[in-house]
Amino acid sequence: MTTPSVVHVVLVRWKPDADAAALQELTELASAFPDTIQGVLAVHCGANTSPEGLAGGFEWALIVSFASSAARDDYLPHPAHQPVAQLISRFAEQVVVFDVDA
């Protein structure tokens, strides 16, 4: 596997109306990024499973590793990313996005 250049972290606190079907669709769409968006190396997403109790109320994360900052920049407006961004916007109470140069 190629070493990532940028890691994109999205943390979400869901609204009460976020249902299991929407979260499953979100997971399926995001998991397809490496096959549909050039420069996406890996995707990890799902509910918080940390035993530390330090999630600050955030319940779900999307972590996307990119080959370069240019690949990250191309991902943001990419048509495959838009449904994911829309679902998160629709069902999220709060979102934090944090990118780290790897």
Rank of each mutant, 00 (worst) to 15 (best):
W60I: 06
D17F: 07
V84W: 10
M1K: 10
S5K: 07
M1I: 09
A71C: 03
F91Q: 08
P77S: 12
V96Q: 12
E52K: 03
T3D: 13
L62I: 13
T2G: 00
L76H: 05
G53K: 12
H81N: 08
A67N: 10
F33N: 01
L11A: 14
M1C: 07
A22M: 06
R13K: 15
H78T: 00
P77F: 11
V40C: 09
I88F: 00
A61I: 12
T27F: 04
T2P: 09
R72Y: 06
L11I: 05
A30Q: 01
T49Y: 07
D17Y: 07
N48G: 02
W60V: 09
H44R: 15
V84Y: 08
L54W: 10
A42I: 00
S69A: 14
D74S: 14
Q82R: 13
D17M: 05
S50W: 01
A92C: 07
D99S: 09
A55T: 05
H78G: 02
A67C: 12
G53V: 06
A67Y: 02
A21R: 11
P83F: 13
A32K: 12
T3I: 11
T2C: 04
P83Q: 14
L41Q: 11
A71N: 05
T27D: 07
V7D: 02
A85G: 09
V6I: 15
Q24Y: 02
S31Y: 00
C45V: 07
